[in-house]
Design a protein around this nucleic acid. Sequence first.
RNA 1: GUCGGCGUGGCGGAACUGGUAGACGCGCCAGACUUAGGAUCUGGUGGGGUGACCCGUGGAGGUUCGAGUCCUCUCGCCGACACCA
Length: 809
Amino acid sequence: MTATRRGGYAPQEIEARWQRTWEERGVMRARDDSPRPPFYNLVMFPYPSGDLHMGHMRNYVIGDLYSRFLRMRGHEVLSPFGWDAFGLPAENAAMKAGVHPRSWTAGNIRRAREQLAMMGVLYDWSREVTTCQPDYYRWTQDLFLLFWERGLAYRAEAPVNWCPVDKTVLANEQVIAGRCWRCGSEVERRELEQWFLRITEYAERLLRDLDLLDHWPERVRVMQANWIGRSEGAEVVFTVAGATERELRVFTTRPDTLFGATFMVVAPEHPLVEEITARDRREEVRAYVAGARGTSEIERLATGRDRTGVFTGAFAVNPVNGERLPIWVADYVLAGYGTGAIMAVPAHDERDHAFARRHHLRIRRVITDEGGGDIEAEAHTGSGSLTGSGAFDGLDSAEGRARITAWLEARGRGRGTVTYRLRDWLISRQRYWGCPIPIVHCERCGLVPVPREQLPVLLPERYAPLAEIPEFVATTCPRCEGPARRETDTMDTFIDSSWYYLRYADAHNQDRPFSTELADHWMPVDQYTGGIEHAILHLLYSRFFVKVLHDAGLVEAVEPFARLFTQGMVTRHGTAMSKSRGNGVSPDDLVAREGADAGRVYEMFIGPPDEDAEWTDAAVQGPVRFLHRVWRLVREPESFPVTGSGGGPAVLRRRVHQAIARVTADYQDFHFNTAVSTLMELTNAMQSHLTEGGERGAEWEEAVRSLVLLLNPMAPHIAEELWQEIGEGLCVDAEWPAFDESVAADPEVTLVVQVNGRVRDRLTVPAGLDQAAAEERALASEAVRRALGDGGSPAKVIHIPDRLINLVL
RNA sequence: GUCGGCGUGGCGGAACUGGUAGACGCGCCAGACUUAGGAUCUGGUGGGGUGACCCGUGGAGGUUCGAGUCCUCUCGCCGACACCA
């Protein structure tokens, strides 16, 4: 297996050379003052965790292909790269191998950079961003202060998710089905004082502005909408019987069922539990609450489990009818959603129904049911008209909701409100390898932000929990200059990645995170490409950041990413490529064996880029052969034997222009797999032209130039090498070929002839035949006459010009 | 359970607003050139009859001159959310 076994094309001999040339010429350097229209083409920056495999590369090849295409189309392309470099894997590696997280990270970055270069992936490296470096995280801290100043960062005690393995708290978004998103261990609930960002204040806008993102995949928008989880309803104020100054507030989406409430339920963590519990119930309630706290999140969330709960001995008064309703404690009510308390309407809610049956509580129908179901057996959760609801009887559910809410509002017993599933973003982490939170705790002044001119708060060199590094902790209060201690939590790394695309626009700014002028020049990102795994976390947080920055007047854009493309995973043997499974295909091996271009073409050819694709080692041969054929067609056309005659230059020219039209559209629409097919068809047509004895005149020259130009974004090395023979300058700087629609038009078309909807013949006819002429030709067909039978003549004729004619008897 | 997405040859996958199903490629078969080839080239390749015919896009219905594409039901796979009041 030597590089030259297949003749002239030896990728190993040309690829490194062109990579050097592109690097030296600074090909992807984006000019802020270019007269060309700007285009911000961004791929999600990676966490530098080790060697890259072809699964990662798919993302970068797509981005690089598109950047090169856009350049040829006349854009000034901003295509930067960087590293999401803070995070736990670096710490874990450090603990295991005894290296500092910084050097582990730096080593991985070096390695990944080499691999990207080896694949011919180009970026504007002058704008490189590394989130763990002080020149970046200084500005992350600066932005944290902005959130603080705007009242969007706060510290509070709350029940939080604690990962016992990673020894840190987690954001809600980072808990997947009760488990840590990183390590998969079961999270615990803990009551801790932590830092939060007030993302809930933006819930409505984050939801509403999804409508602006019409170039995002529908499923991502749906996932975000579900995550934000907007519920319209009412807050209803009940009073605790015998303690009228005590209010019990509940949230309901069904105020129309208020008359059907037969009991109340509060979450075990509800602040009122201890106070309202009757003396003789105290022991039982305390035991239940303790039990609920001890139950893991996973168990609590399990569906179909027993509806446990205990009666507090207290009663609440229903504001609409003065009824006394027993107040229960049960863990099916969540402390963190709504008010942590509900009115239970067992007749019209399945959960309440199950609970009522289990504990022998009353079930009272207040919504009629046309189906006439048995309310004791099953809850009726649909709408209907109100009954047993006093003055509101007869109203339909929607009207009932509005009228009862208005009634409550008029008496100060409730109001219409909206509740979101989204919670505030818990951002503090008890870890070393992250961005320090720039806050000082002063005994006299409380929480004091570190003044901007004192940033960055540097991460100490010694690797240890920050709380255990006295020289880091001990400081003076910026306000009173008294003794104080530094905040020892670091920020969630998702903060680092929530604004990096803004830093790229102005990566060397020494005074600000970025200048508004440059941000507005490049933002929003025109095309953002990355994995679907970021559909919620990263994309939601980034959207939140941009909205806050917009409100602060720092950027004009209200959304960060105009167009989003989520590419599928590359699998091998049915599972995603990964180091731990050992099924990754190394770019190093592939490049050494077949060259970067073959790897790139295969990755684009493997399937629709937004779907998962199975890597088949043998299938790489298709692209390998294809590239050899391209080489031979351009450099050694005389090596194709002439075995026929009649290859016309007009046919060749038509094929060329058809290919330009299709490849242009396919690149534009991210249909890279069909773009490869089209290029293969073009080489097939060119080869036929030669073997049929076609001349190598102007049409041939045009075919060769077009082929190389169309191929360039996908297989840039071979294109560059071939371009030296046939073009001027660098291919990467060349202009995208134009096509002539009239040249691309086929003069002859295949007309499908159907009889009663079944294909009976296919005729080659001149384009543009009218119905009468088409019918005449169809009737002349032997096969058609046979199908029509004796003397049969069509009762009806359907004619689709240049496509089909259907004779219906 | 709810909400999305997807089911097409041996395999990866094509098929624009309903109009030639299987483009392109892998693999396979036959042949050519060769000492040889896992190189290259030529031809073939959905299934069945092998006659111009029939059957085929997970399954069953429907709309239509015509359905992979639209509608209804259903089966299977993947993903997200999952006691959210």
